[in-house]
């Protein structure tokens, strides 16, 4: 089976003034369709950079990233954004909803950046997702008027509206209480079957990471243990 996303010896370096910071160095990692992968690491380990590389928000300094067999490491911004729009869904620790938009407007926002003809009605689909997640009655609320768990559900709905192949979740429970956190985790995990989505979970919590089929541990920008 061919990997959906294939990282080959990928490095990412930043320049902080005169000093070169190696956020990710020499990581090779194949990610397969409908896989549930977790990336475990302490803060500053480079796990977020790795996630952004996988999520096509960053291009590697060295090495190669393939998406669906196509080399995407040197794609121009427009094509990369396009691919991100149609194939990647992000869920963040801070929810990252746009506060001046209502819940419904937040969910349909990605459809506005689609360069291809949509095969669905954005509003209908958004409402269906909100209904599935039990928050349809919040569709006209602004994000700061609903609870954290509800906000994260909205963020997940937004991540799913374009039917992405991959859902990238960056510490999705980090801002939630002990009751809501597991609910959100279960919701994310359920998407794999329901939407045939590949799930990549970035976390610093072992218990969260352990729920995945496959986990990698990253330290100082390098893979420490593979496929535990």
């Amino acid at each position: 089976m061919k990997p959906l996303i294939d990282l080959r010896n990928v490095s990412k370096t930043y320049w902080l003034g005169e000093t070169e910071v190696k956020a990710v160095s020499g990581i090779s990692l194949p990610i397969y369709r409908q896989e549930y992968l977790s990336i475990l690491g302490a803060s500053g380990s480079g796990k977020s950079t790795l996630m952004y590389l996988i999520g096509l928000l960053e291009i590697p300094s060295r090495g190669k990233i393939s998406f669906n067999g196509r080399d995407v490491s040197k794609l121009a911004d427009a094509k990369l954004s396009h691919l991100r729009n149609g194939s990647i869904g992000f869920v963040f620790q801070q929810f990252n909803l746009i506060n001046k938009f209502t819940v419904l407007e937040n969910v349909i926002l990605p459809t506005r950046y689609s360069k291809t003809r949509l095969k669905f009605n954005p509003k209908n689909k958004a409402r269906q997702l909100l209904k599935d997640f039990g928050i349809l009655d919040r569709q006209d609320f602004f994000p700061n008027k609903i609870s954290g768990g509800q906000q994260q559900r909205v963020a997940i709905a937004r991540a799913l509206i374009m039917n992405p192949a991959v859902l990238l979740a960056d510490e999705p429970t980090g801002n939630l209480d002990s009751k809501t956190g597991p609910e959100i985790l279960r919701l994310i995990e359920s998407l794999r079957k329901k939407f045939k989505t590949t799930i990549i979970m970035v976390t610093h919590e072992k218990e969260v990471a352990n729920r995945a089929d496959k986990k990698i541990y990253i330290k100082d920008g390098r893979l420490v243990k593979k496929y535990l």
Binding site: A78, N85, F90, N96, L109, Y113
Partner: peptide, 16 residues
Amino acid sequence: TKEVGIRRAIGATRQD
């Protein structure tokens, strides 16, 4: 700035 980041993450191009 944050809004720009969010929009970029969900697929907005520089041009957008």
